[in-house]
């Protein structure tokens, strides 16, 4: 199998009077189609690790490889391009643009990529919303949606450009049990049924248990890799 994402001796420190180490010497490989959960206590550096894997942040030392290519020395524009084409993000807050309707929010990454024409983009955005059970809500503004619906729209937006990798940072952190279960089901389905690589940061052990693999981070280091 080929490693889609690979970290090699990844270290991230925040410079300052007191140097804060967020991630220290993390090496890991994530295979195509794998469903990986990263867990650990608050402040352990699991989100920071996800930002590094998602090319939102650059390591102080070490390397991140996307499809075998070292990205840790790329320029901002190259990283933006890589995120646009290969990655979809879901955060604890949905971060939907409040002035744009549901379908317009989902269309944003596709419009930025510019590979499809406008009618195609709307058609595809509606299609994605439909598979997530949100077709009725497509013309609503984010403030008219419930928390669970918003998070599903955020997932729909992450899927716009058909990315190989989905990175989610505490996607169920703000949700009630029922919505949480729906979102967990969707993310799991993306890996199992659609062959996408899904990396989820969560401190919910029940959610983590559904993953192919759990990586536990404590004080910025991998505690022990366990396979299920």
């Amino acid at each position: 199998m080929t490693a889609v994402l690979e970290a090699e001796h990844l270290t991230r420190r925040l410079p300052g009077e007191v140097v804060v180490t967020l991630v220290e010497d993390v090496s890991l490989q994530i295979q195509k189609g794998e469903f990986v959960a990263i867990n650990g206590p608050s402040g352990s550096g699991k989100s920071s690790l996800l930002y590094l894997l998602g090319l939102l942040d650059l390591p102080t030392s070490g390397a991140v490889r996307l499809n075998g290519e070292d990205m840790s020395h790329s320029g901002e524009d190259q990283l933006a391009r890589a995120r646009l084409e290969h990655m979809g993000f879901v955060f604890q807050s949905h971060f939907l643009l409040p002035e744009f309707s549901t379908v317009e929010n989902v269309a944003l990454p596709m419009r930025r990529l510019g590979k499809l024409d406008d009618t195609e983009i709307v058609r595809r955005a509606t299609e994605i919303l439909e598979t997530l059970g949100l077709k009725q809500e497509r013309h609503k503004l984010p403030k008219q949606l419930s928390g669970g619906q918003s998070q599903r729209v955020a997932i729909a937006r992450a899927l716009g450009n058909n990315p190989a990798i989905i990175l989610a940072d505490e996607p169920t952190g703000n949700l009630d049990t029922k919505s949480s279960a729906i979102v967990q089901g969707i993310l799991k389905g993306l890996a199992r049924e659609h062959g996408r690589t899904v990396v989820v940061v969560t401190h919910d052990p029940q959610f983590a248990a559904q993953a192919d693999r759990i990586i536990t981070i404590v004080d910025g280091r991998i505690l022990h890799p366990s396979y299920t």
Partner: peptide, 16 residues
């Protein structure tokens, strides 16, 4: 600021 953050993480460049 939040919108800018999400737009950038989606893949909008600093120029955009």
């Amino acid at each position: 600021r939040r919108d800018v953050a999400i737009l950038k993480s989606i893949g909008f460049r600093a120029r955009d």
